[in-house]
Amino acid sequence: MVQIDSLTFYYKKEERFFDFPNIALSKGENLLILGKSGIGKTTLLHLLAGILIPISGKVVIAGVDIHSISHPELDKFRGQNIGLVFQKKHAIQSLNVIENLQTRLFLSKKPINNTSIDFLLKQLDISNCKNSTINTLSEGQLQRLGIAMAVIHNPQVIFADEPTSSLDDENCKIVIELLIKQAKLTNANLIVITHDHRIKSLFSNSITL
């Protein structure tokens, strides 16, 4: 469950004001947010993930108004309930694939279960690079690892920021399909924010900023 209510944000440095539309997603529902560069896509995503603090408005995830709780609580909430997928950087450089996933579980204070890690890597077709270091992975493998990092802890919501913009058409489709599949498996809400119109057809529910 994700609910956004009259959310606004102001960038002091650039003197820019953002006013975001209200959104309400029921459990398991996905949403594609389309928008041109500079329209505040990443800002919205950071507000949703509790990385930025809004001027006004509410973000409610799984019944929790995330901007009303304390910082440590927010850190904990983010770790346990939110999965983030980024465009390029997906994992910690100094750790290998499996260590990254173990770290992810450790930081979200969930039990480290190597069987479920293996299972997820298999599903994402990257079992063979389980012990690879991050800088030896290809773009496609990295993006899959990014998905794994976002879902391994069974989050309530998965936010993806331009997950496909550096991928070719084929990988683009595969990655989105994987995201949708994983979201469904964990019964999480998936919100993808992008300017990439190639994936519009894969979502039934979309808005444009």
Binding site: I51, D75, G79, Q80, A91, S94, T103, L107, S108, K109
Partner: peptide, 13 residues
């Protein structure tokens, strides 16, 4: 960026 990522994973400052 790695440190920021760790924060999104739920790590506290």
């Amino acid at each position: 960026f790695d440190l920021a990522l760790l924060r999104t994973y739920g790590a506290s400052n």
